[in-house]
């Protein structure tokens, strides 16, 4: 049983490309539909927790399922299982990548790939904020927070100020708590 947790999450780590949200459907298929480790309600709980705690969603899911099914040892095995394929595959690639990039056709390919990556990041952020605005009860507030953080981050980069992103995230968390308190006091 405990070992099955490890194998299952190792498989999930090995066969989901793209991670995060792509992984959600695989975990549901494996752990809810096939193995019946969790029921649907538990899975939704898990999603809510995964999205509201730090760390990659895949890790949250592995730890949670592992704990439910096998306590601490289960949690450890499931989590190690899900990250192990990454560590192995990426360590091997890291070893070769530098020499690989010197080949002309590869470096040409990566010229295009780098442009694709920056566009993907912008597009992902755009999709995320669209969903946030759609689901938000305070749309103006959501947009304002997004725009302010976007501008502050770009501005600090342009001005060469080294404000760490963590400070910004910390400010965001503080803001979230303050706004939530204000809301519960019916100020906003």
């Amino acid at each position: 049983m405990i070992f099955e947790l490890f194998i299952t999450f190792f498989k999930i780590g090995l066969f989901t490309i793209g991670g995060g949200y792509a992984m959600i459907s695989v975990v549901q298929d494996e752990c809810v539909e096939r193995k019946k480790w969790l029921d649907n309600e538990e899975f939704l709980n898990l999603l809510a927790i995964a999205e509201s705690t730090p760390g990659p969603i895949a890790i949250n899911m592995a730890t949670y399922t592992g704990y439910i099914k096998g306590k601490l040892l289960g949690a450890i095995l499931a989590t190690v299982g899900v990250i192990l394929p990454s560590i192995i595959v990426i360590s091997i690639i890291s070893y070769f990548i530098k020499d690989f990039l010197h080949i002309e056709i590869i470096s040409n390919a990566f010229f295009g790939i780098r442009i694709a990556v920056s566009i993907i990041i912008i597009k992902t952020a755009y999709n995320l904020i669209k969903t946030e605005v759609k689901n938000s009860q305070h749309k103006a507030l959501t947009i304002a927070l997004f725009v302010v953080f976007l501008i502050v981050m770009v501005a600090t980069d342009l001005l060469g100020l080294n404000i760490s992103t963590m400070i910004l995230v910390f400010i965001a968390i503080l803001l979230g708590i303050i706004l939530s308190v204000l809301r519960s006091m019916k100020v906003i």
């Binding site: 920056s118 990041i121 952020a125 959501t142 927070l145 997004f146 953080f149 995230v169 400010i171 965001a172």
Partner: peptide
């Protein structure tokens, strides 16, 4: 609610990095 105000801020930083 707190989480729904934290998320847009973080998405802002992601968009900034892409740009």
């Amino acid at each position: 609610f707190a989480l729904s105000t934290i998320r847009p801020c973080i998405v802002g930083t992601i968009m900034a990095v892409g740009a």
